[in-house]
């Protein structure tokens, strides 16, 4: 049989998926052992045990100076910023994006502007944000918005425009007004692909979050890893990176789950990643 037609069973898929992870871990442990055998105080590739100790210290022991459990405080602060930024961007997509896609006059007015705006490299806006809104929470959230809103608006407008014209005409012949069409046809047909876009936009959102926190912040996951970098504390940085990755993965899966629950019709055919 051709290789494109050979599909792994469920269990085989799980084993296959595990292989690269196991290999990566093994490679790390091997390299770490080699270095530590030569120099037990080496900081570059800490042993899994010392990383666990560092993680345990960050997560389950109160900080000596502040009395906070740093990992959880950092996680909470970062997630609040991330979700606030994504919430604003999503709102912009659902309003501006949908209107651009559905109403030709709004499209003519706003589409070129949004297209131009989306080409500004978001990080270049960061100093402007710092000057205008200060170094507080607002500038970090604003950076995430600047970085993700234009993509979300554009992809939402595009998905509204790809609703088959026949469907919209059918709604017109059923006597629906524009508001009713937005509510019962355009939004429901667009939301599943909006969720997809949000999942993709979360990737740059994390980058902007960590960058903003690294540059000006006193808490957050990005702040922490850039803080401990000064002491070459790889035993803290690596678990934090894994933790951030895990959070990103969980968010992604939750959104997929949400989409499957809310829009079963969208997931009837074909596999989705």
């Amino acid at each position: 049989m051709r290789i494109i037609n050979r599909k792994p069973s469920r269990i085989a898929s799980m084993y296959l998926a595990a292989i690269p992870f196991v290999l990566a871990v093994l490679a790390y442990v091997y390299a770490s052992n080699r270095r530590l055998a030569e120099n037990p105080s080496d900081k570059l590739l800490p042993s899994p045990y010392s990383m666990w100790m560092a993680f345990e210290r960050m997560a389950f022991q109160p900080d000596r100076r502040t009395g906070d459990y740093l990992l959880w405080v950092d996680t909470f602060d970062s997630l609040v910023r991330l979700s606030a930024g994504m919430a604003v961007s999503t709102l912009a997509a659902v309003t501006i994006g949908v209107l651009i896609g559905f109403i030709p006059h709004v499209r003519a007015t706003l589409a070129p502007f949004i297209a131009t705006f989306s080409l500004i490299p978001p990080i270049t806006v960061l100093p402007i944000l710092f000057i205008f809104v200060g170094l507080g929470e607002a500038s970090k959230i604003a950076l995430i918005v600047v970085g993700t809103a234009p993509i979300l608006i554009r992809s939402t407008a595009q998905s509204v425009m790809s609703i088959p014209r026949e469907t919209i005409i059918k709604a017109e012949t059923l006597g629906a007004n524009v508001w009713q069409m937005l509510l019962r046809l355009v939004l429901p047909q667009t939301l599943p692909s909006l969720i997809n876009s949000i999942r993709l936009a979360l990737i740059p959102a994390w980058i902007f979050l960590i960058s903003a926190e690294a540059i000006a912040s006193t808490s957050g996951l990005g702040y922490r890893i850039f803080l401990v970098r000064r002491f070459l504390a790889m035993d803290v940085i690596l678990p934090y990176v894994i933790w951030i990755t895990l959070l990103a993965y969980i968010l992604d899966r939750l959104l997929l789950l949400l989409s499957r629950r809310m829009f079963p019709w969208f997931h009837l055919h074909g596999e989705s990643l």
Binding site: P164, T167, K170, L174, G175, Q180, F263
Partner: peptide
Amino acid sequence: RYSVFSHLTVEENLLLVREVETAPMAA
């Protein structure tokens, strides 16, 4: 093709006609 609303079930598709007629705001 595309004559019915793919995100609505059979009965929701039929129900929509009445909903559009009688509920101008909520639909």
